[in-house]
Design a protein around this nucleic acid. Structure first.
Lengths: 219, 219
DNA sequence: TAATTAAGTTAGACTAATCTAACAATTTTA
DNA sequence: TAAAATTGTTAGATTAGTCTAACTTAATTA
């Protein structure tokens, strides 16, 4: 098996995440490029290299899909990412919004022994600190149907189980509203015009935007 | 402060290690190149870049030294390396000879918060699993005068405190002889001709070469 | 359906890190 | 001290990953 670089791993991971989030198999070049913060031309070059390595499939001007091997690698990277996040949160006392950026680096450490031992040390966790499922060794990224706060009607109570956006900026905002995993949220009202919502968490009411609401997963 | 790459960090670390081990301040290009497994020309190119960044000092055809800033970065990399080794050994149950290679990757993770929290989690260890001292935050690599097994006269008892060579190959050999940190060694005999020694560890006698003996630190 | 806009690709260039081969300076030694 | 050996440097090339600018194809819409 040939060497796979740090950068290639990031492309594969992005492809899996995008297709997973959108629910569609194929991913576009521009979509991928903007997700990775590179220019479409750059992504196009890399995609050709990944195709040569049989990690992605696509025809000129058509959507991109991961091959089985590409998907396996991407899943493994996500597995590592989420295990490291769990380690940082549970063992090193990192806060919820700090774990992502460091895990972005740690996920690329090459040592299957390391990740297996880490998993054991953490006692085989099923979810990371953001509520996302951790794939098992050689496993799949499980598709769980999830509602967002946007789907909850006015007057209903729900419970936050995970977040979609893992950026530090968003998570700090979530903390500021008084929210965390497993907190209950009561939907007080919603504006027709711009979907601005008033929610109540632990007795404190806050206004949140549509963009905010669609990044909060609830049950 | 400008960005410092993975590779640059390795060059700085190598410069510190070589000058530390040899006891001399200046390091030669060939010496550095062979330590890193690259060609002298490659090392020379990199050294010019490091000089531009004010991390090393040297004049054409002269020995290379680290600047204060270069030394600080190198020391920090070594600090990270040794803390990660301690983590792998103590928390993840890695064996003594397995920790080095993984720590070579982990030492380049950029997050001062991570390394401070890791140090706290490990309860501020002073030595890594190979017996080498862990520099404190912002500290120096302490020069400890150390004798090797080669310095012990026939008929004398000593105690192994550390190893010089951290390669997996060497460490596996050490384990095979029945040696570990803090084990007592009795020097039974030594050949004049090639310095071949017979040592006794826990009642078991073994023959070891000069090369082996000079990589074992004792008190 | 033809024109416009969006999406995707190509060509050519740049930087970092590496190499080989040739050359220059320094050190050793006969 | 002159020749040989060692050590260090330069020039020119290569690869991965990125860019800009120009171009092509596909999708949308008037």
């Amino acid at each position: 098996m040939f060497m796979i670089s740090f950068t290639e791993e990031n492309y594969l991971k992005a492809l899996l995440r995008i297709s997973f989030d959108s629910g569609e198999t194929g991913v576009g070049t521009n979509e991928l490029a903007s997700h990775l913060g590179v220019k479409p031309a750059t992504a196009n070059d890399m995609l050709k290299r990944l195709r040569d390595k049989a990690l992605v499939d696509f025809e000129k001007y058509k959507k991109i899909t991961l091959t089985r091997e590409g998907k396996n690698i991407a899943t493994e990277v996500i597995r590592k990412h989420r295990l490291w996040e769990t380690f940082l949160y549970e063992k090193l006392e990192f806060s919820w919004d700090e774990v992502h950026d460091v895990a972005e680096q740690l996920e690329h450490i090459q040592s299957s022994k390391l990740i297996d031992k880490l998993e054991k040390f953490l006692d085989y966790p099923a979810f990371d600190p953001h509520g996302d499922p951790i794939p098992s060794k050689g496993g799949e990224l499980t598709k769980q149907f999830r509602k967002t706060l946007l789907d909850i009607p006015v007057g209903q109570l729900c419970k936050m189980v995970a977040v979609k956006d893992n950026s530090s900026a968003f998570l700090q905002y979530v903390v500021k509203v008084g929210l965390g995993i497993n907190n209950e949220i009561y939907v007080q009202s919603r504006q027709e015009y711009d979907a601005l919502m008033v929610i109540e968490v632990n007795g404190v009411a806050s206004s949140v935007s549509e963009k905010f609401a669609e990044n909060i997963y609830v049950v």
